[in-house]
């Protein structure tokens, strides 16, 4: 049986395919839904900071490979966002599906805003677009909306395989 990281890479590859085609073309309110980032954040909310950061790193590197930004920037942002999402149990004793959904929406929006900041750190422009408020609101709402879909997919992809 494939390991959790192999499954993660395969699922991420499919999500990246959706990201660069459907989600890149369909932009409600002129905002693209960053499903790769939301998937990394979902990993954090489900499996904690350590697993989330590793998953974020892997997903981010894959995303980096199709971006024209420096390699490593998306992995840093995704990893940090997933790590932050993994801190949910420190604030909510027993997270439910809807507290996770809220976390995915909020942390996903913050993670997307972290992109320009990270870009500016390496000297790549990094200013906020004029419709940044729309981006944030849309990402919070859409992140919470698709969280019920991402949670089971991520749970399956990162479940621990039995040994032997």
């Amino acid at each position: 049986m494939a390991s959790r990281w192999t499954r993660l890479v395969l699922v991420s590859l499919i999500l990246l395919g959706l990201q660069t085609t459907l989600l890149n073309d369909v932009r409600p309110f002129d905002v693209m839904l960053p499903v790769m980032l939301l998937f990394a954040v979902t990993a954090g909310t489900l499996y904690g900071s350590e697993i989330g950061a590793t998953a974020g790193l892997i997903i981010g590197v894959m995303y980096d490979c199709v971006l024209s930004m420096p390699l490593g920037l998306a992995s840093l942002v995704f990893g940090a966002a997933a790590y932050a999402a993994g801190l949910l149990p420190f604030f909510v004793r027993e997270p439910t599906w809807w507290t996770r959904a809220i976390t995915i929406g909020v942390v996903g929006a913050v993670g997307e805003l972290a992109f320009p900041v990270a870009q500016s750190m390496v000297g790549f422009g990094g200013h906020f677009p004029p419709h940044v408020v729309v981006v944030v609101v849309f990402l919070v709402v859409s992140g919470m909306s698709i969280a019920p879909l991402l949670l089971p997919v991520c749970r399956w992809a990162l479940k621990e395989s039995p040994v032997g």
Partner: peptide, 15 residues
């Protein structure tokens, strides 16, 4: 987390 940051910084620097 430190490993994540370090890996990312190395990748960014290399790129």
């Amino acid at each position: 987390m430190a490993l994540l940051v370090l890996t990312s910084i190395i990748l960014v620097t290399l790129d």
